[in-house]
Amino acid sequence: MIEIRDLRFAYGSGFALSVPVLDVAARERVAVVGPSGAGKTTLLNLVSGIAVPDAGRVTLDGRAISALPDRARRAARAASVGFVFQEFALVDYLSAEENVLYPYRVGTGLALDKEARARARALLAEFGLGEKTRRRPAQLSQGERQRVAIARALVTRPKVILADEATGNLDPANKAAALDLLFAQAAETGAALLCVTHDHELLPRFDRVIDFADLGGTA
């Protein structure tokens, strides 16, 4: 599902990331660990096409996303990648349901239709938020917000789910519940899950753990 070959990326500040080989298969649940500043978030940006590598290739669902022009890359990201952010990144002026549908409002090439609305409501109901679809983020608990954020990542049925410290702001019970949801949905849709985390207690639940140092040559 994700295939990285001879990836090199450098910021102007001198930071550079090098990933010779990285493969993540469909349905595979991979945790990425490493010290802060090692480039974990940069890796997610390169996988999703937000950042373009200086050299090498990133293939997503069989398409070399790193070689696509800007608009096509955005469309591929909107259609194939689901994001879960550490701070949830919900939009404060939208209801829970509208937050879940937000990718359809802004994503290149996505069209909001009845099916998308039905899926958003179904996801929220499945996540125990069926009665709170009209509530805004400020009216939800931390755990509920994270569930809304996960529903947003899943609503487009992405091939790849990228999670950046997705459970970092949750208490242990909510952490486990959020991970359960992610794993279950990824399994259902066959999506690959690449999850950056600092939480070593969660690592045994993943199929594979990539220590960032093993990727080869962060500097």
């Binding site: 909107a78 939009v91 937000y102 802004v106 290149t108």
Partner: peptide
């Protein structure tokens, strides 16, 4: 806006 961009907005 950063979220929108990450979700595929141009």
């Amino acid at each position: 806006m950063r979220t929108a961009f990450a979700l595929g907005a141009g």
